[in-house]
């Protein structure tokens, strides 16, 4: 699912080459640490955090399908 976070983030930002996703995976859970160009931080968070919330909602649905709890951390 790392590719999913990458695909969404790259579509949102102005500097897709600076998108980095690090997956910390356990047997039943995974944490995705998303790093973007400093100028793009607002783009992945969104007004009132709506974009970050939308990405987490998508990951939540993927968690159901994958039977694995997946969370997103946006690293500043």
């Amino acid at each position: 699912m790392k590719e999913l976070v990458e695909a969404i983030a790259k579509a949102l930002v102005d500097h897709p080459e600076d998108v980095q996703v690090k997956a910390v995976e356990g047997p039943q859970s995974a944490v995705f640490e998303l790093r973007v160009h400093p100028e793009d931080l607002g783009k992945v968070i969104g007004r009132q955090g709506r974009t970050a919330k939308a990405m987490r909602t998508i990951l939540g649905a993927s968690s159901v399908k994958a039977r694995k709890r997946m969370t997103l951390e946006i690293v500043e």
């Binding site: 969404i8 579509a11 949102l12 969104g46 709506r50 974009t51 919330k53 939308a54 990405m55 909602t57 998508i58 939540g60 649905a61």
Partner: peptide
């Protein structure tokens, strides 16, 4: 999820 995907 559909609404989240629309937002993105």
């Amino acid at each position: 999820v559909l609404k989240a995907l629309e937002h993105l």
